[in-house]
Amino acid sequence: MSTLTIEAHESRSNDPSTHSLESFTQSAIKCLSWTLGTILFGLAMVDFYAQTYAHETELALQHAQTKMLELNRDLRMSEINEYIAGTPSVVTRPADNHTQMCKKMKQYTWNGFFKDYSISVYVGLGEDPSIDFVHGPGEMIKDLPTHTLGKAL
């Protein structure tokens, strides 16, 4: 014969504080997870837009430079603002040793949360200098062919 043990209703734990504490803990963990996930997603989007603006600006400047060369004209600094995406910070520096024909470099920087993205625009001399070379965030200057004389097409 088998014996069945039947618990009386009064002996079971019906303490509502135990169930509500477990429920509250699970809800708090879910809420915290969603909040942290949303914050991380927002920060990743800030970086994504910074990278996108830098890349779009680089491509737009190179395309405009190519169009102007087809017309036998130079792209000038006065014409550059319409090609800048977003609101980068701008720093003017002397040109480095890799470009002998350029005298100044304007560095446009878009700040992301995790990383900053920059393009360098090398310009000549004069009142309204021409843009000689655009160096984007993904390319290395030493990898460019030397026969372009500072022009990237």
Rank of each mutant, 00 (worst) to 15 (best):
A60K: 01
L144N: 03
P145H: 05
Y53N: 15
L36D: 03
Q26G: 12
Y53D: 11
L36Q: 05
Y49P: 03
E79D: 15
Q65N: 13
Q107H: 02
S11V: 04
S13M: 07
T52F: 09
E127K: 10
G42R: 14
E82Y: 06
V123R: 03
S78A: 14
T5F: 12
T146W: 01
A60E: 06
E127N: 11
N81I: 11
E7A: 12
T3G: 03
S20P: 00
K103S: 11
S89M: 07
T3H: 09
R12M: 08
F114C: 10
A152R: 11
L4G: 02
S89G: 10
E82I: 01
S130F: 03
V46A: 06
V90F: 05
N97F: 10
L75K: 03
W110V: 00
F24K: 04
S11R: 09
A50C: 11
D74G: 15
H55C: 03
L4W: 09
E7P: 08
T146C: 07
N111C: 01
D15N: 15
D128K: 04
P129A: 01
S33C: 14
M1C: 05
G86F: 02
D47F: 06
M140V: 13
V121H: 00
S78C: 11
H147N: 10
R12L: 10
M101R: 06
A95I: 01
E22R: 06
D128L: 05
G136D: 00
M77Y: 04
G112W: 00
S2R: 13
I131H: 00
V123M: 07
E58H: 05
E7T: 11
E56L: 13
D143C: 06
I131E: 10
P88L: 01
W110L: 04
L144E: 10
M1K: 02
G150F: 10
T52Q: 14
S78D: 15
S17Q: 08
D96S: 01
T87M: 08
W34L: 15
Y117Q: 02
C31Y: 13
S27D: 08
L61G: 07
S78Q: 13
G126A: 09
V134C: 05
M1A: 12
E82K: 15
V46D: 01
L75Y: 07
H63P: 00
L43K: 11
Q107G: 02
L36K: 04
